[in-house]
């Protein structure tokens, strides 16, 4: 088990390296190939109408004219040990993990991420709690009442939920629930100090999509599990039906769903882009989106690295949990 975890961790580091290299290549090499010069990049950093000396200083400070591998190496080194920039007038130390400074705002990318991560966390976790409870319950009930009106209705709604994107449900609910009927206040969430229940509408919209997905998954899994021989054995032992369903059936059903959940939550923690955009919440997704829109390379790189990190970590946790839940994995 320890060897397994160590091997997975090494694999995760390798994966992150590859992701960083690919991202670096996309945002560095592609614009260069398209004719963007280091002057242009430095110009973006310097603001309006910089003179040549300023540009040169900026290029020198960030090493824009260094060969790409060297720049990539510096980027990696900064993450591990931090970096120190010399602006000429002062030395700025960027402690590890240093992801550089935004071209646009001159802020530390790491700080921006640390600022925004909790917001995305709140969106993702709140929605996850909702969708797991609602999705799994509906899936279980649907499976147990297969073919009934409840099942058909639930699966019909689930199909709609899977098909409707968050920007549609989000904008619709904003228009009606908030603006027309005034049932809920405006979504206004900018940090942990704000009332988390301001996020209720994004939670519901995001959870609607995922709950639909999970209801379908759970239903299919449950139907399959309830046909297993060991369920028949459980019944043959005379166990009450609720024990059969909730102890024997659900445990086996939820194991594969746990995997999907790990991936989904990992993905969302890196930025619930559409939800954040729809409700104008300044999370990691917004950050990444703004970075892309403004060709703010350090921000994009940082956001991508953080998103990748979450996905890789979530995968690792799921794999380990699998060993905990399924003794067959543990012993193999």
């Amino acid at each position: 088990m320890v060897a397994f975890i160590v091997r997975r961790l090494l694999g995760a580091v390798g994966l992150l390296l590859i992701i960083s290299a690919v991202t670096f290549a996309i945002f560095f090499l592609v614009p260069r190939a398209a004719g963007v010069t280091s002057d242009d990049i430095a110009g973006r950093f310097a603001g309006k109408q910089p003179d040549a000396a300023t540009l040169a200083a900026i290029k020198d400070r960030f090493g824009f004219d260094d060969p790409v591998p060297v720049q990539y190496g510096k980027f990696l080194k900064a993450i591990v040990v931090g970096d120190t920039y010399d602006t000429g007038t002062e030395k700025i130390h960027c402690p590890a993990p240093c992801l550089g400074y935004s071209f646009r705002t001159n802020q530390s990318v790491t700080d921006q991420i640390v600022d925004r991560a909790p917001i995305t966390f709140m969106i993702a976790i709140g929605a996850a709690v909702l969708w797991v409870i609602v999705g799994v319950s509906i899936g279980v009930l649907s499976a147990l009442r297969r073919g009934t009106i409840f099942d058909r209705a639930a699966m019909g709604i689930a199909l709609a939920g899977v098909s409707l994107p968050v920007f549609f449900t989000g904008l619709l609910s904003l228009a009606f629930v908030v603006h027309r009927w005034n049932l809920l206040p405006e979504v206004n969430y900018e940090g942990l100090s704000d009332n988390p229940f301001n996020l209720i509408l994004p939670w519901i919209c995001l959870a609607f999509l995922y709950a639909a997905l999970y209801a379908r998954l759970t239903r299919a899994g449950m139907l399959e599990t309830m046909n297993e021989d060991y369920i028949r054995t459980a019944r043959a032992k005379g166990l009450p039906e609720k024990t059969v369903v909730f102890k024997h059936g659900l445990r086996a059903t939820l194991t594969p769903i746990m995997t999907v959940f790990g991936l989904d939550i990992g993905l969302l923690l890196g930025g619930a882009i559409i939800t954040e955009k729809t409700f104008s919440i300044p999370g990691l997704g917004q950050l990444a989106l703004d970075g892309v829109n403004q060709s703010d390379l350090p921000v994009v790189l940082g956001a991508t690295m953080v998103a990748a990190l979450f996905i890789v970590l979530a995968n690792l946790v799921v794999d380990i949990l699998y060993g905990v839940v399924d003794p067959r994995v543990r012993h193999s």
Binding site: E228, Y230, R232, T233, P327
Partner: peptide, 23 residues
């Protein structure tokens, strides 16, 4: 009937691997 199952009447199945809960 459930109360009789397992107590008064019990069953052995064909495939003991799939008939026991793996977890």
């Amino acid at each position: 009937v459930r109360r009789l199952r397992g107590r008064k009447m019990a069953m052995i199945f064909q495939d003991p691997l799939s008939s026991m809960h793996p977890f």
